[in-house]
Computed example of a mutant assay.
Amino acid sequence: MKRRNVLLTAAVIAIAGVTGFVYSCKSVKVPDGITVVKDFKIKPYMGTWYEIARFDFKHEKDLSNVTATYSLNENGTVKVVNRGYNYVKDRWEQANGKATFVDKIDEGALKVSFFGPFYAGYNVVLMQPDYENALIFGETKDYIWILSRNKTIPNNVKEKFLKEAEKAGYDLSRLVWTKHDK
């Protein structure tokens, strides 16, 4: 009887641990001190965006000509297709994922997953009213993207975005400026 109670207790602890792990994979928060775009509308955000700049990380290492294409799924989630040219391996690479809102559907706080239950923060912190250019912060200061509907961005917008990133504590010397030559 004692052995059965020990096994039952161990099973309950294991289930609670797995449940907590899965929940933590899905829970994403907007970082402290960061304000996301209010009155955000998902439909105008859909379509293809060109990556202008980013902090490099393992999944985008050695990529140029990077685009992110968003489309609405029937269930309300967003299909995400990130594509870039790996200039070291001399081939195109693509990652497919999904995004959902963290909380309110009219705020630019989303979470994105490319790997099963694992989500990362995607926070739209600045955007032009015409949805032409956007500044995105991740859930930590290790992730930042400047996106545009065009392969280049106007200098005044670039400066505004860089000032906002610097004010938020981002190390701008880490920015990789994406080439679009293919």
Results as ranks from 00 to 15, higher is better:
41 K>C: 07
55 F>Y: 06
35 T>F: 09
168 A>V: 11
29 K>W: 14
45 Y>P: 02
93 E>K: 13
112 V>P: 02
177 W>H: 10
171 D>P: 00
109 A>P: 02
158 K>C: 12
153 I>Q: 08
135 L>C: 05
180 H>R: 03
41 K>S: 10
163 K>I: 12
64 S>M: 14
11 A>V: 12
89 K>A: 10
147 L>C: 00
172 L>E: 05
47 G>N: 07
181 D>H: 15
167 K>L: 08
178 T>P: 03
66 V>P: 01
88 V>I: 12
104 K>M: 12
3 R>N: 15
30 V>F: 04
144 I>L: 05
77 T>L: 06
106 D>V: 06
25 C>D: 09
51 E>M: 04
57 F>D: 13
167 K>I: 11
85 Y>W: 08
60 E>G: 09
17 G>T: 03
67 T>E: 06
20 G>F: 02
171 D>E: 07
40 F>A: 04
8 L>N: 14
156 N>D: 15
122 Y>L: 06
63 L>P: 00
177 W>D: 07
74 E>C: 14
30 V>T: 02
74 E>T: 15
73 N>E: 10
19 T>Y: 14
182 K>R: 13
93 E>P: 07
87 Y>F: 13
11 A>N: 11
23 Y>R: 15
102 V>W: 00
122 Y>S: 01
57 F>Y: 12
2 K>D: 15
111 K>I: 00
84 G>A: 00
16 A>K: 10
50 Y>S: 00
180 H>S: 01
70 Y>H: 04
134 A>Y: 05
76 G>H: 08
71 S>G: 12
41 K>D: 08
111 K>R: 00
10 A>R: 05
144 I>S: 01
82 N>K: 00
169 G>T: 03
